[in-house]
């Protein structure tokens, strides 16, 4: 840090309150554990990933891969898998939206209407975590089985026709092995990640603010959109991010609940890494996915303007 001393003439504000040197250094020492943590669990793996994305694609697991700054891997990955990339964003987006709607109602009910059942309901929200992700997803195969009552009921009320009309299922009058099942599985699996932050921010809202809005001529509906919802925005943003990011990279739901044409980018990456041993393409695709997600998140956080909230 000594080099900073020589840089730039101090302006009046700067020199007005010179901080003692020792204290400045203390600050850097204090971030050391966090920096180490980041280094070990983020920076190094990330470098490894980036470097594999720039491997010479002619290498192989057996003959070895060499880092050759082969940026064309990205062009190839995007060209070859833009369909799956787009599908992942689309499915994750729909699942996030579904999570938001369902999760909001749930979190709202828990925060404001549950009374003494509040804690029990929160436990029930987290309860699915006590079984494995895989088992939970597999159990949906039984629930949505082609000859099961859920599908039978959906057929009776023509839900399957509706979903087919929207394009979420095929013409075969079933729910399993359709885009609908994949999105539903994502929604189900990531719902708690939406509910918990939403609950946390709703629960913090002073009910007197809601009373104030109703005192100021806002009907319950308008009061919700003008007061409750804006105040819960930090929860909405946190929840949607926590849902969207893992959903976009998920491959379990597409594997178990989808069909051959609903594969997401996670499936591709998994297949490239394990079955095909194509580290270069797998790395490039992973980094691309990461970049897309980071880009979307930045735009999202900017436009939602949450940093403006108290």
């Amino acid at each position: 840090m000594t080099s900073t001393a020589g840089i730039a003439p101090a302006n009046p504000h700067d020199s007005a309150a010179p901080a003692p040197r020792g204290r400045k250094l203390t600050g850097y020492w204090l971030i050391l554990p966090a920096a180490l943590w980041l280094g070990v669990f983020f920076v190094i793996p990330f470098y490894s990933l980036v470097s594999s994305s720039l491997f010479d694609p002619n290498g192989s697991v057996l003959t070895g891969y060499n880092m050759t700054w082969h940026f064309a891997n990205y062009v190839d990955a995007i060209n070859d898998y833009k369909g799956q990339l787009w599908r992942s964003i689309w499915y994750a987006g729909l699942a996030t939206l579904a999570c938001l709607v369902i999760g909001y109602v749930l979190a709202y009910a828990i925060a404001f209407k549950a009374g003494r059942w509040k804690n029990l309901m929160l436990v029930l929200v987290i309860a699915p975590f006590f079984t494995s992700f895989l088992l939970r997803t597999l159990s949906w195969k039984l629930i949505l089985a082609d000859d099961g009552w859920v599908v039978g009921f959906a057929q009776t009320i023509h839900l399957t026709n509706l979903l087919n009309f929207i394009g979420l299922t095929g013409t075969d009058d079933r729910l399993l092995a359709t885009p609908f099942a994949v999105i539903a599985g994502l929604t189900y699996n990531f719902l708690p990640f939406m509910v918990l932050p939403l609950y946390a921010s709703l629960e913090k809202i002073d009910v007197r603010l809601i009373e104030a809005s109703s005192d100021l001529y806002a009907s319950p509906m308008r009061g919700f959109f003008k007061v409750t919802f804006p105040l819960s925005l930090p929860g909405v943003v946190a929840g949607t991010l926590l849902t969207f990011i893992p959903a976009a990279g998920d491959y379990i739901n597409a594997t178990l609940l989808g069909n051959t044409n609903t594969k997401m980018v996670g499936n591709v990456i998994q297949s490239l890494f394990t079955t095909q041993g194509d580290y270069a393409a797998a790395g490039a695709l992973s980094v691309t996915l990461m970049a897309i997600i980071v880009g979307l998140v930045l735009i999202y956080v900017r436009t939602s303007g949450t940093e403006d909230l108290v």
């Binding site: 007197r208 104030a212 809005s213 109703s214 100021l216 007061v227 925005l233 403006d308």
Partner: peptide, 27 residues
């Protein structure tokens, strides 16, 4: 409550934290 010609100044004011002062007043 939202249909009465009655308004309240609440204890601790209950101002809307996400709105600025003129938005609060215009609410």
């Amino acid at each position: 409550p939202y249909k009465r010609p009655v308004n309240t100044v609440f204890q601790n004011y209950a101002l809307f934290p996400h709105l600025n002062i003129s938005k609060n007043v215009a609410f």
